[in-house]
Design a protein around this nucleic acid. Structure first.
Lengths: 176, 176
DNA sequence: GCTGAAATTTGTCTAGG
DNA sequence: CCTAGACAAATTTCAGC
């Protein structure tokens, strides 16, 4: 059979529905407070609680929502020293050893990067001494040629992926 | 009413109990999955559900736990381009205008930094074009002298503050 | 500060429209 | 996608130690 009818307005790759505006509004709330009840969420976006629940469940399964986690305060955890470390390594392939650094709780992020550095690390330690210890360990890894450390003096913003999208970034609207 | 009773044995300064080992074990689980029930947590650390709940509630109030949030997938949100931008600004004081960039959903982190840059931004956009648009906007801000952009080619690790502490960082234990 | 049990709210699923 | 209902399971409170 050939689907001639024009009623197929719905793009039905049903298994993988894309994220719509309502989804993003729900996620916008959940990225700030995931303890919000489905009833509350429903009231915010104009849906019933079960409808919201279904959307959230779908996004969890599709892994658009990777996890629900608690956000901790660095200072309260005894880690008031935050630094970004750009690592230049000689010879790619030793990456595995560098990625193994992720087992250390001090290391929060590991990215491979363009530019004049090979790897970018985000590291949070108790103090500068602990950071120094970390750097020593870093240089123990074969292939590590040089590092550049940028210490964060103060943090103005720190959050995860935001669901909102800016449509007119290049159009120069004022931020105010 | 005047509180006459001498039962005020509780030190009011007791409101600020420090984080102990059990707290950190609880937080370790919650940073990976905050949907874990108090009963499960209790079984893990050897406490009852209400006891765990009390600890978590205390840490929330003390803001050691800043929030409970969902972690989103960048690509699923249509943002597959991650970059760290080091901004050098002439004349401090224009910081406010730079910090206002935090209102854009693309911007995930803003730190003031040492080194040869003044500000470090973590920005996640749809693609390189959107990033270019963001950079244009950046240069529109008065005082912005130069920027260096480091694009993350792949992300090996990305997580929040970890509750665990490494005691022997400088002692060279193997990571394996 | 912890326990154990009870009370209340919420999450979760089902059925029918 | 909504309403409505019902059950399971969680959060939360409380007395007592």
């Amino acid at each position: 059979m050939e689907p001639k009818n024009t009623d197929q307005i719905q793009k039905n790759t049903k298994t993988q529905r894309s994220i719509d505006t309502i989804d993003r509004r729900i996620l916008s709330v959940l990225t700030k407070d995931a303890t919000t009840s489905y009833a509350e969420l429903g009231a915010m976006v104009g849906l019933s609680a079960p409808a919201v629940h279904e959307r959230v469940k779908r996004m969890r399964k599709a892994e658009a929502i990777k996890a629900t986690v608690v956000a901790l305060d660095g200072k309260a955890m005894g880690k008031s020293f935050l630094a970004f470390i750009h690592v230049e390594a000689r010879g790619w392939g030793k990456t595995t050893e560098l990625v193994a650094l992720g087992q250390l709780p001090e290391v929060e992020e590991i990215h491979s990067a363009t530019g004049d550095t090979g790897l970018i690390l985000k590291v949070r330690t108790e103090n500068s001494v602990a950071l120094e210890g970390f750097l020593w360990r870093l240089y123990d890894i074969e292939g590590v040629r040089s590092t550049k450390t940028y210490v964060a003096l103060s943090t103005y913003l720190e959050r995860g992926v935001q669901p909102e999208i800016t449509h007119s970034l290049a159009e120069g609207g004022n931020i105010k």
